[in-house]
Nucleic acid binder design. Structure first.
Lengths: 230, 230
DNA sequence: ACCTGAACACCGTTCAAGT
DNA sequence: ACCTGAACACCGTTCAAGT
């Protein structure tokens, strides 16, 4: 008599950091942020939960690594042309990854000085330099763009997740939001009520790029008080 | 013989949503995001964990409510003067609350259409209107500012938390980041390496306001191609 | 109407023990 | 060196039962 009636078939590939990260991305995509679990992961990888800790420090490390993998992929996909076009491409690339993988948005906050953020800073920074922005203003410019890109992308992703959680598609969701906003007290919320119409049929990606252009315009326009003649 | 040797003294005040929210804020401030627990909360409020569910739908509801309480307070504290000054004041107010209560940053993402976000949109929107921005461009302007404010504040808060977790003060933390960045490959990371010096002695609040001004400049500057003469 | 607290179905992380 | 899986110390949420 065999010791175990039906032993689990052993995984064919041996465990590795990369395989763990790939499985994590799948889990996060398919089941959301709360779907990434050491139990779910070890089941999917046909291993013990403790084995994962041999390749990965902890859950946070795992999340950052998954994030970084996607950021690297995105950066490699954007072609470098003129500075402004490149900035737009990087921005849109990040917007789209976060739209597709909403968990990237929240994970990306975690640590300045950590690789995914640094990669993005570098990419944008090089373009800001190419634009001829003064040395001592480069940091502010890059920081502003960075904050904007992550800020909008994250908010967009949050909305999508909210919609998905309630089984609504994009337009149903916007419908619901604009309905809720229409019911606000017009005395207390005149502005929000006045943009209800705009909310309903706006295009997130277009708005996003409009904001980028707004910031690029600010970067380009003369600092200080008076405008130098051209 | 008494049934219980030392019965727990009963709370003097009866439970209420407000008291629960106040206690949650304290817990979040003192012990961080992971310190908000129904068990910790019920102990602090001298009640059963289930009792809290009578006043609050679930943990997410609780988090949003705590968030909203602080946003309301902040909005009430900012004085309205000129449009741009008001925008700066609102922005700085939010920056500071999030700096002081880092968990507000992450909780604020959650839901468009939910009160704290709507409150902020309204406040900024009214100023954008007062600036005379065209109707169909107001939404983009407000959205950009909003994303920027939340984006930077959140990143700042994340850094502070990271520093606190490692028992470093601000300058030690920046020291560490700039050290790490100095070690990056200069061929791969020329930009990041060139701004290492700026990172070390920059003032977050000043940079933050510089970004706001950058965006306000963009909002003010003529759209389309050509500049109208003044 | 409001509160209690045990019970349920989960977590991340550790670690002695195996190969 | 790498893996196993039980054990530990937690979670959020529910719910019969109490007042």
């Amino acid at each position: 008599m065999a010791k175990k009636a039906h032993r689990r078939e052993r995984r064919e590939q041996s465990l590795s950091r990369d395989r763990i990260i790939a499985a994590s991305i799948q889990l996060l995509d398919r089941r959301g942020e709360r779907g990434l679990t050491f139990r779910a992961l070890s089941e999917r990888l046909a291993t013990g939960s403790g084995a994962i800790y041999w390749h990965v420090a902890n859950k946070n490390d795992l999340l950052t690594a998954a994030c970084d993998a996607l950021v690297v992929r995105t950066m490699n996909q954007t072609v470098v042309t003129t500075p402004k076009a490149t900035i737009r491409a990087v921005a849109l690339g990040l917007f789209d990854v976060i739209d597709e993988h909403p968990w990237v948005g929240s994970a990306l906050t975690s640590a300045l000085g950590l690789s995914p953020i640094v990669r993005i800073l570098e990419r944008i920074g090089q373009q800001i330099r190419a634009l001829g922005v003064a040395d001592d203003e480069q940091w502010a410019a890059v920081g502003t763009l960075m904050a904007y890109i992550l800020g909008v992308s994250r908010q967009n992703a949050a909305n999508r997740q909210l919609a998905r959680a309630r089984d609504l598609d994009r337009s149903d969701f916007l419908e619901e939001v604009s309905n809720a906003w229409s019911k606000l007290d017009p005395k207390e919320y005149p502005f929000v009520r006045s943009v209800v119409a705009q909310i309903r049929d706006h295009d997130d990606r277009v708005d996003f790029l409009a904001g980028i252009d707004l910031i690029l315009m600010g970067i380009d326009s003369p600092r200080r008080r008076r405008r130098p003649r051209r």
